[in-house]
Amino acid sequence: MKRHALATLAVVAGALCAARPASAQGVEARSRPSVATAADSALEAQTTAVASTLRCPVCQGESLQDSPSDLARQMRAVVRDKLRAGETPDEVRAYFVSKYGEWILLEPTMTGLNILLYFIPVLLVIGGLVLVAFLVRRWTAPESTTP
């Protein structure tokens, strides 16, 4: 997005930009972001929901929804267009997986090895609750059981 700054520095701020090497052209052809309209708030909500589960490729761990980068914005537009065309959220996600790999999903699918990821915490909590119940029972038992 450097180019926009260069351009603006040159045009808006006058001769401020002397230190910068490049010149200030070509911004006019840039596509404007596809801006959310309130007209279809259901579509917008669905876009937000899907975009929140996809990872922005040029950021660090941010979702498409959160990232201010150009690519994330364009990918959100693709999400919106596909949803508008009648694709289901899962189909949209599958499209991005086919292009970028599983990496793009911020939440791993509940299949194969990934199941462990979801079950280990649940098992830990259940096991922990059983253990606590057991310990409390034993520790509150009448004196005779403790040596």
């Binding site: 911020l106 791993p108 990934n114």
Partner: peptide, 24 residues
């Protein structure tokens, strides 16, 4: 901890890069 380390595990076992992020 498991969620943070899982991308490493998945790559070691399945050879696939995965992300574990906010929704998880």
């Amino acid at each position: 901890l498991v969620g943070t380390l899982y991308p490493l595990v998945a790559e070691a076992v399945r050879g696939v890069k995965v992300s574990v992020g906010v929704p998880f």
